[in-house]
């Protein structure tokens, strides 16, 4: 990554709030993405990873959710303050999104080809036949067998894996610069997931699309990411290059998450756990939101830690990181 190149997307201090809640659902989230790179946002249900992506797309369920602060510069223009018409021009053209359950995001009464062609017609103003030819080209690109026949089929006639391929074809039909993918393989079987991940990687290399991939699966992260943002209860708790996150995990949540996964290569002893559960969206604790579940918590954790820099682009929001330096001599850590 060349640090000088202007980022494709620069999110600064994004906050999202549920109406009447006392704290933000997504709180002060910042990250940037270079053209052609993949950022994985990883976290458990309710951590705000999907809401972050929806806010960027302008698809937040509003009300009750609303963006309460921040900017998201996409090619220099703030997505969060664009007028509706302008947003619609960008959405589906320069940026596109795919979802976990393709059956609920495809129109069940429109033929596959028609749905893809619609996106092309709308943004490119081409004729029906050109749009249809593009739809066919895209279905072939996502390696749907007998693409010409599938063009005229309805979503229910396709298998789950095929539908997700069709969704990808639709999302990429206008050569977007940014693809947002929200748990695109979670509903799929493991062998189909492998095919879709492989397809996404190939297409990304070919088309140079940047990607924000949202997942709960650290395996998918290791497989796909250039950079990783770990989210917990609405905040990024750790962010950095993939190797930093896996080989130098600093936040107790990241460490806990990795330790609690059973290994595949050898039989693990008793699984390590993270106690308790994620705080509810309407009742986020003050200070570090992970503190109540953290085995390393101390007095200062009642204050919110900033993301600070242990090295390179790797940043972590924990008073006690790196833990080996503070845990062995238990004492009040000083803010960085």
């Amino acid at each position: 990554m060349t640090p000088d190149a202007p980022p494709l997307l620069e999110v600064r201090n994004l906050s999202i709030r549920v109406a009447n809640a006392r704290s933000n659902l997504v709180d002060d989230v910042s990250f940037s993405l270079q053209p052609g790179r993949t950022l994985c946002i990883v976290g458990e249900s309710g951590c705000g990873k999907s809401q972050t992506a929806l806010a960027l797309m302008g698809l937040l369920a509003s009300p009750p959710l609303s963006v309460t602060g921040g900017t998201a510069l996409f090619n220099g223009r703030d997505l969060l303050s664009l007028p509706q018409a302008e947003k619609q021009r960008i959405r589906g053209d320069r940026m596109a999104m795919i979802f976990q359950e393709p059956m609920s995001s495809l129109n069940p009464v429109l033929r596959i080809g028609e749905q893809i062609a619609e996106a092309v017609r709308r943004h490119r103003g081409v004729s029906n036949s050109v749009a249809r030819a593009r739809a066919l080209e895209m279905l072939e690109k996502v390696r749907i067998p007998a693409a010409g026949k599938r063009l005229d089929e309805f979503p229910h006639q396709l298998s789950g894996g095929m539908r997700q391929r069709a969704m990808i074809a639709m999302a990429l039909a206008n050569d977007p610069e940014l693809l947002l993918a929200d748990e695109p393989t979670t509903a799929l079987d493991v062998t189909i997931q492998a095919q879709i991940l492989d397809l996404m990687r190939t297409l990304q290399a070919e088309l140079g699309t940047a990607m924000i991939l949202i997942t709960h699966d650290l395996g998918v992260v290791a497989e796909m990411a250039d950079e990783v943002a770990v989210m917990y209860a609405g905040r990024i708790v750790e962010i950095g290059a993939t190797q930093d996150i896996f080989d130098d995990p600093q936040h107790p949540y990241t460490i806990g998450l990795m330790s609690s996964m059973p290994a595949l290569g050898r039989r693990s002893e008793r699984l390590v756990t993270i106690p308790g559960r994620v705080p509810s969206a309407t009742d986020m604790p003050d200070g570090c939101r992970f503190a109540s579940r953290c085995p390393f918590r101390i007095g200062i954790c009642a204050r919110t830690p900033e993301l600070s820099n242990p090295g390179g682009s790797h940043r972590v929001a924990c008073w006690r990181a790196p833990i080996e330096e503070t845990y062995l001599q238990p004492q009040e850590a000083q803010p960085a």
Partner: peptide, 24 residues
Amino acid sequence: EALLAAIPLPQYGARKVKVSIEGD
């Protein structure tokens, strides 16, 4: 073998998933 090869491993630099069986 194909099932095992398709599991993404949560490690940097681990073997990548292998698509040894195509289709549904």
